[in-house]
Amino acid sequence: MNARRTREAVFLRWLPLIIISIFVLLPIYWAIATSLKTDAGILQRPVQYIPNPFTLENYSEAWVASNFSLYFLNSLKVSLASVFFICVIAIMAGYALARYKFKGKILFMGMVLCIQFIPHAVLLIPLFDTFNKVGLVGTLTSVALVCITLNFPFITVLMRGFITGIPYSLEEAAQIDGCSRFGGVVRIVIPMLVPGIVTCGAFSFIGIWNEFLFSLMFLSDASKYTIPIGLRMMQGEYNVEYGALAAGAIIAMSIPVLLFAYLQKYLVNGLGGAVKG
């Protein structure tokens, strides 16, 4: 019986888990290893599985020579600005959806859902044309505006859930004590909503940090590139510098992976089937 148990644990738990973990980690490990190798080490045969000699040269090359410091800053600007506005919009709309009964609620939810189905590539031409007409093409603002529009719907639904979780009686009590409805929201709801806002913010940040298609279409000047565009351009070069590319990839993944570490527990416990595209 005991032997059978052990065998079961090995074949139904540890073996598959380890195989899957290797599958998940291999690309990440390989990028880290490549980023720490010298140019000779990268090309060396037989393959160097562990970097030797070990160097940080590629990181400084990616950060300085390949301009990742600039792309990092641009990505940060777009992401933070978008996340701020998304959270403001989502709190307002989420509050309306959580606390009011009104005509058109289902219509709004339907609209939110439909947005998930719109192929982003469809929007490329008309949005490019529109931004071109108002002189916004090539600016980070144009990317941020699109990111806000594409990401707020899901975040609004999420925020609605968080607001529903805060008892309305607390707001009523504040109103009895002389608070206006708005005052009640600011003093009661917002402070209690902080964990929800952080989660929503982290969630939308990952999506926007990774945005590629519209940035590629709108940003033509290298001084405005975001990280995904910088990576793409490096990869498309005639003579790809793989060490610096791998270092760039590690820099690019650092922030989303850290945010993910914060979100991951919540992902399974709270979000359930809630969906990130």
Partner: peptide
């Protein structure tokens, strides 16, 4: 918890980043 965190990591990766990682493979 450890395996869960580990196996879900690619969720946070972008398409471009995935392309770079697999290109290296």
């Amino acid at each position: 918890g450890f395996f869960r965190a580990l196996i879900f990591i690619p969720w946070a990766m972008s398409g471009v980043l995935t392309a770079v990682l697999w290109n290296l493979i």
